[in-house]
Structure formats: C-alpha cells, structure tokens
Computed example of a mutant assay.
Amino acid sequence: GALAGAARLLGYEAVPDPADTPGFEAHVQVLGRVAVTCGDGRAREWGRARARDLLALLAVHPAGLPREAAQEALFPGADPGVGERNFRVTLHALGQVLEEGARSGVFLERGDWLRLRPGPDLHVDLAAAWALLAEAAGTPGRLDGLLLLPAALADVDLDDVVREAGRYAAALPEALTAEAEVALAVARPDQAVRAAERALNLDPAHEPAARALMRAHYALGRGAAAGRVYAALTAALAELDLRPLPDTQALWQALAGARS
C-alpha cells in the first residue's frame, strides 16, 4: 500500500509484480525505420529480417492479432508445417531482440494471440504519433510535436503495414493544415507558415495546406511568396492531370487583386 502512489507516478495502475518490471525502458520505432532501443539508447541488433517485419505488424495492431493471421502475413501460402516452423523461429528472434535482459513475456505476449504489452516500460512511437494526431487542433505543444514526426512509416512489405502507412501519410498533412488554420484564426501567420509548409513538403498537391500558406504569406506582406505557392501547387496538380479547385483559384485571384 505504501508503494501504490509511487507506482501510479511511474505509470503503473497498481504495484507491479517485480518480474514484470525489467528495470529498463524499451523503445519501439516503426516511423521512418524499424528499430528497438534500450533505455540507454543502444540499438538492438536484428537477427532475422522477418523479426523486424513482425514487430512492425504488431505495432500497427496495438490490440494484437491472432497468431495464425500473423503467420500467414509473414509466410503467405507456405506449407503449414514449414510456415509454423519459420514463424516460431521468427517469434523467438523478436523476443530475443525486444526482451534482451528481461523476463520472457514482459513486452511480448505469445500464444494464440500476439500483442506488444502496453505499459510504462514499453514505448511505441506509432502509438504516440496517433495520440498526438488525435488531439484537437490548437492544443498547446501539438504543432511542435507534429513538426517533429517522421514523414512515413518504415518500408515494410506487409499489407496491414502498407495500409497503416497510407492512413498515417494522409493524417499528418491534414493535422498540420488544421494547425495552420487555427494559427491564422488567432493571428499567428508565422505559425501557420511553419505548419502549412511542412504539410506541403509531405504532399505538394494538398490544396487546403496551399490555401492556408497563401493566406499566411499574404498576412505577412509576402504577396510574391503567395504567388509561388500557387504556382507550385498548380504544377504538382498538373502532374496528376488535375487543376486547382475553384476555391483555390478564387483565393489566388482575390489575393492577386488585393495585391495589385
């Protein structure tokens, strides 16, 4: 009972079993690349490439997934005996990387259902990124956090990871654009420029971000810069056989007219 308060401050719901406290933090990275680092920053070495892919698969399924589904994703169409043997070796290799120096099962649930065990000792960057993306636009510190997020998930050729990569690639520019709109609403065009420029770096054909950036530049007295944004957007859309939307064209005409 005397330790309950300290346990909560450390992120535990209750005083944990000593066997479930490895004594270090593990950081799982799947944004940009797949990596595991210890609390001291030392990167773990991968014994098998498929163990890396399995970690990415588990990271995009925070609630876990059936063992059979994970095995089929990693070894599609394999003979059942061969697939099971290869998957067992891969799962063991992931456990060695993720739980080096800790009791088996501290970070990785095994059995019929596989899952990265959430807790204060295990940190997954993708989970933190989605939590940040889910915050309301204008939340203090959100824009700075979004600007630090990597552009994409690691390149892992698994269908579920590819789908998650697509969701992330769409969500990040949208969140940055929303921050730009909030910044314009509170008369902070400098902040809007930071957010919208990052969104357009990620997606040069993102029209809402371009409109926000044009308005921000105009508010800062940079009419020529607003024109360059419109020209770059038009070129990016032309590569997709598209033209700017009427709203975007009308905005540029209004800004150009006001500038004249």
Rank of each mutant, 00 (worst) to 15 (best):
D144R: 08
P22W: 04
P66N: 13
D20A: 15
E13T: 04
H27T: 07
A231G: 05
G138F: 03
W252H: 04
A93C: 10
L108E: 13
R33W: 12
G101C: 12
L148F: 01
Q249I: 11
Q96W: 08
R50Y: 14
R117Y: 03
A250L: 05
Y218I: 02
E135A: 08
V193R: 03
E68F: 05
L255F: 00
L251E: 06
E174S: 02
A2L: 09
A199G: 00
A78C: 11
A73G: 12
A178Y: 01
A196G: 01
E25I: 11
Y230T: 02
G41S: 10
H92K: 14
A70M: 13
L9W: 06
D17Q: 15
E84Y: 11
A224Y: 08
Q191P: 03
R198K: 09
L184R: 08
A180L: 10
V97N: 04
G101M: 06
A56M: 15
G47Y: 09
A196N: 03
A209D: 02
Y168A: 07
A232W: 03
E109V: 06
H217D: 12
E197Q: 14
E72W: 00
G119E: 10
A129P: 07
R67L: 14
A232S: 14
L94Y: 03
E68L: 11
D155I: 10
Q253L: 07
G39D: 05
L245Y: 12
F87S: 04
L245P: 02
S260R: 13
P150C: 09
Y218T: 09
L132N: 01
D40A: 11
A250V: 09
G81Q: 13
G166R: 15
Y168C: 10
L10G: 06
V162I: 13
H61Y: 01
E72H: 02
A6K: 01
A210P: 10
H206R: 03
V162K: 15
L114D: 06
A232T: 08
F24D: 13
L237P: 04
L122M: 12
G138A: 10
E13P: 00
Y230I: 06
G47K: 15
G5P: 05
A127I: 12
V229R: 03
L237R: 01
T21L: 08
L57S: 11
G5A: 08
T248M: 05
